Amino acid sequence: MFIAILEDDPVCLDQLSSLLRTASEQSPQEWRVDNGEKGWQIDSYQNARAFIRGIKRNTYNLVLLDWMLPDMNGPEVLHWMDEYFQSPPPVIMVTNRDAEQDVVEALKAGAEDFVSKPFRSEELIARVLTTLRRHHVGGKHRYEPFSHGELTVSPKEEVISIRGEPVKLTHQEYRLALLLLRNLNHPLSRSYLYETVWGQEESPMSRTLDVHIYRLRRKLDLNAENGWKLSSVYRYGYRLQRLVEE
């Protein structure tokens, strides 16, 4: 699980970070990030400029966003994300502003939820988990089989089949394919893929990810003839797209 916090108040930022890390340590295994026992990775930002640099490099499953920031306001950040990303990550506004018109403005700008300060810790974590579950991140649902076209994924067995025939994949190939298939049409950063699949940061000279992408194209027939497009996103990562309606 990768979560970003954009909050300019250092006290509140530390409070939110500590709360999420505690929740990560106490969460059941099904809510942990897919690469084992690492829990939730929390990245903190105190201004929009730093956040924009970070989200251009990294993939986040959730963003906690303050309204009043030194260089942009929360709705402006939401509008930027909506313009920059085809599928922006879900956002929970955490702010002192709680008038009805503020809630409406935030939701219209793209926020998933709205939490007023001072927030209640258990309620905030419940809203975080609900938002993640709504976007199919973590939880027991991740073990349920799902299909796209002729591909069927069986997470419990860690098997991917084409027209009912299991495909022989290495453990890392399966994990990479699972991430791409669960995030159709959404670009995933190289750093996110390395952290989640291999549990480590990318080496500057490493071609491991690119080699595995090449193998998945071939083994899973991820080509235009079969209704797929697996492409690189310049200076960011990779995106798997479904070219036909299902």
Results as ranks from 00 to 15, higher is better:
Pro88Asn: 00
Phe2Arg: 15
Leu16Pro: 07
Gln86Lys: 14
Val197Asp: 02
Tyr60Lys: 08
Thr208Asp: 11
Asp14Lys: 14
Ser44Ala: 15
Thr59Leu: 00
Leu64Val: 02
Ala50Leu: 06
Ser231His: 15
Asp221Arg: 11
Asp66Ser: 08
His148Gln: 10
Arg53Lys: 09
Leu124Gly: 09
Leu181Arg: 12
Leu20Asp: 10
Ala23Gly: 07
Ser147Met: 00
Ile52Asp: 01
Glu173Ala: 15
Leu184Gln: 02
Ser147Phe: 00
Ile42Pro: 07
Leu240Val: 08
Tyr236Ile: 06
Met81Arg: 05
Lys140Arg: 09
Gln101Glu: 13
Thr170Ile: 00
Pro118Ser: 06
Ala106His: 05
Asn223Asp: 10
Pro89Thr: 03
Ser189Ile: 11
Val159Phe: 00
Ile92Gly: 04
Val94Cys: 11
Ile52Trp: 02
Phe85Ala: 05
Leu243Gln: 05
Phe85Gln: 05
Val103Thr: 11
Val104Tyr: 10
Leu13Ala: 15
Arg182Met: 06
Ser231Val: 13
Thr95Lys: 03
Thr130Glu: 08
Lys117Tyr: 05
Glu225Leu: 09
Tyr143Arg: 11
Pro75Glu: 09
Glu25Gly: 15
Ser27Val: 03
Glu195Lys: 07
Pro88Gly: 01
Phe51Gln: 00
Val33His: 13
Trp67Val: 12
Ile92Phe: 00
Met72Ile: 05
Gly36Arg: 07
Thr208Glu: 12
Phe114Tyr: 15
Ile92Pro: 03
Gln86Asn: 12
Leu20Thr: 12
Ser161Gly: 04
Glu7Arg: 04
Phe2Gly: 14
Arg21Pro: 06
Lys38Cys: 07
Asp113Cys: 05
Gly138Ala: 02
Lys219Phe: 04
Glu25Leu: 13
Met205Arg: 14
Arg49Met: 06
Gln241Asp: 15
Ser17Asp: 14
Gly237Met: 01
Val77Ala: 08
Glu123Pro: 01
Asn61Pro: 01
Trp40Leu: 02
Gly139Cys: 11
Gly139His: 06
Gly74Cys: 00
Leu65Phe: 02
Phe146Ser: 12
Trp40Ile: 05
Asp14His: 09
Gly149Val: 03
Ala99Cys: 11
Ile55Ser: 09
Glu76Asp: 11
Trp80Glu: 00
Tyr234Pro: 03
Ser87Gly: 04
Lys168Cys: 09
Glu157Asn: 13
Asn183Cys: 04
Ser154His: 13
Val159Tyr: 01
His186Cys: 03
Ala48Gly: 14
Glu37Pro: 04
Thr196Asn: 12
His148Trp: 08
Gly139Met: 10
Lys229Cys: 14
Gln200Cys: 13
Arg133Trp: 08
Ser24Arg: 01
Asp14Glu: 13
Ser154Leu: 13
Tyr60Pro: 10
Val167Tyr: 01
Leu181Trp: 09
Lys108Met: 09
Ala50Trp: 01
Pro155Ser: 09
Ile3Thr: 03
Asp43Met: 04
Asn47Asp: 15
Arg127Asp: 05
Arg207Ile: 11
Asp34Trp: 05
Glu100Asp: 12
Glu195Thr: 07
Ser154Phe: 11
Lys56Gly: 10
Asp66Trp: 01
Lys219Gly: 08
Gly199Phe: 08
Gln26Val: 03
Val153Met: 03
Gln15Asp: 14
Val94Met: 06
Ser44Asn: 15
Leu179Cys: 15
Tyr194Glu: 14
Ala50Val: 05
Asp71Cys: 06
Asp102Pro: 07
Pro10His: 01
His141Leu: 12
Arg127Lys: 12
Leu209Thr: 10
Asp8Leu: 05
Asp210Pro: 03
Ile52Phe: 10
Ala4Tyr: 00
Glu144Asn: 10
Gln200Gly: 09
Val244Met: 08
